[in-house]
Design a protein around this nucleic acid. Structure first.
Lengths: 330, 330
DNA sequence: CTGAAAGCGCTAACAA
DNA sequence: TTGTTAGCGCTTTCAG
């Protein structure tokens, strides 16, 4: 409670040397004698010295912090990627500050501004709003930024993403090949990239197989209430007697699997699903589900290394990485 | 690139006033005239002023940051809780710094020290090592700290946890009531709390039902390789012809479900499972699984509010909260 | 090898 | 209502 906090000055006083010497000794500068270093370390330990990184960072003009801003950090996809970035970054001395935007552009903007005030050194962002002003501004200022997941290929700036449209087209076609005659689709924020690209892929599959595109079967799920909304929309599609359903991400797909198992058990063998993103449970769950697996580790590693390079200023040239996801037919 | 960073001084110079006035104007101090505030804000915008929170925090002796240190931030349980704490904390102006320890006590210690250097204002910790020196030290110094999940009830300090032993006993007994005659158990780090308490509950259930305790059926899963290890141990238990398996957390349980569905499909209806933690998929997956659901939102809310109170010094008295989990029989 | 001095950008007592 | 002044704790040139 009433403990005095030890500073570098206290150590200096004790040894009758100056702050600068102590500072150098603690950072193991080659210009300091081993004897001094030893003494400094001893006294530091004795006084329970805790370096104040805030002060050091202010002086250095760097916070050794990177921010990870995504719609929802507890979504397995974002959680896994965050975890991997965290561990790579930590090895280089960077900590990860996380922020969830809840798919809310206003919140995202406020969050980013707040983080910039905190002098973050880099930002990894799955933006809710492609081409937002805040992001453009960062790109223009050449701020170390890696976009992912929610990016349009044409966007300025550095990004890592997976191909959306063709993959979804292939996944949908695989349902058609399995004999589906009437397909529905569920998506959150269908107007936003990359969800809209996935929907475009779905439509292309229908077109090239001469299915009629019934927009009534392309359903929007409320992202503030994914669970209930998915169930309502599934009920609707089932009423319309679809024999296959496509989902634009894993959240809705896993909800729908739950839904079918709980309320439409008899349809579990008949319905065919396809979804962007993969989950382990898709290997055995019913309805059978074809999925598009994003190479999570590869994405995370690339994001982390690209960002570290940018912060090191090793690379100032724009880097765009588009990965091919893996179609898992089931 | 070659842009000069605007400071509060630049704004002051422009308006021929002092830094302090600008500082006060920007923080909307009542002692400043509206006219001045307005002008300051205008110039701030014009010069693209970005406040430097690092400097302000240094001055205030507070970082407005709390750390969330857990074994693995991508584990759904920790991810969800982190997400909830993050949003509550943000409302009070605190950001969340995350760190995963990989169940490695050394890593955890280094991480915590590192975070303390960063002048975090509070820490939420699911420690790998109950009663470690670092944690004791924080408790002694009255540092705002909330322990959870990995805590022994007798530990000093503030914590939120769920009852482990009895819950696991009940879950195990429900398998026995369903007719299981030979039960096995899988656990990571079985020597550490709360896993050991869960195992104790398992054993008590056996004892009170006059089952013999065959320690060979209590298997350890390697936490560096949960997937492979779970599969190996499941193979062993199946070879021993168990008719029920108990898991000390959701990671192993979901792996085992996968395993049975992939390799022992014929056993899916016969085997009975029980697990600490609940997952939605348990509602419909096979083998049937009885689970112990932790009240995640309640846990998170309590952690967040307890920590905020501590940081506010509203509460300096030790708070211990033990929650009763919810047994879901299936 | 060590010291002196300046300052990172901001805030807050104390004055006026 | 505004200014003066000091300093948060640390690093780093420039001297010696």
């Amino acid at each position: 409670m009433g403990e005095k906090i030890t500073t570098i000055q206290d150590i200096a006083d004790r040894l009758k040397i100056t702050r600068s010497t102590v500072s150098r000794a603690l950072s193991d500068s080659p210009r300091i004698s081993d004897k001094t270093k030893k003494k400094v370390r001893e006294i530091a330990k004795e006084l329970n010295y805790v370096p104040n990184t805030l002060a050091s960072n202010l002086r250095k003009g760097k916070s050794f912090t990177i921010a990870y801003v995504v719609p929802d950090i507890s979504n397995p996809f974002f959680a896994k990627i965050g975890r991997l970035i965290e561990s790579i970054a930590l090895k280089e001395g960077y900590f990860l500050l996380v922020g969830s935007t809840d798919e809310d552009a206003k919140k995202e903007e406020a969050l980013i501004n707040n983080l910039m005030n905190r002098q973050i050194d880099g930002l990894v962002l799955a933006s809710t709003k492609v081409n937002s002003k805040v992001v453009k501004n960062l790109v223009d200022r050449n701020f170390p930024l890696i976009l992912f997941d929610r990016v349009d290929e044409k966007v300025d700036g550095n990004y890592v993403l997976v191909e959306n449209e063709q993959s979804m087209q292939k996944a949908t076609e695989s349902l058609i090949l399995q004999g589906c005659k009437k397909l529905g689709l569920l998506s959150i924020t269908p107007e936003l990239y990359p969800l809209n690209a996935r929907i475009a892929g779905f439509k292309k599959a229908l077109e090239s197989n001469h299915f009629e595109i019934n927009t009534d079967l392309i359903r929007k799920v409320d992202n503030n209430n994914i669970k209930e909304s998915t169930h309502a929309e599934m009920a609707y599609l089932i009423e319309q007697e679809v024999d296959g359903v496509v989902f634009t991400n894993n959240t809705m797909a896993s909800q729908a699997i739950w839904n079918v198992n709980m309320y439409y058990k008899d349809l579990a063998e008949k319905l065919k699903f396809a979804s962007f993103d993969n989950l382990e449970l898709f290997d055995y769950s019913l309805p059978k589900i074809t999925s598009i697996a994003q190479p999570i580790e590869f994405i995370a590693r690339n994001i982390a290394h690209m960002l570290l390079d940018l912060m090191d200023k090793k690379e100032m040239q724009v880097k765009k990485l588009v990965l091919e996801p893996n179609l898992i037919k089931r």
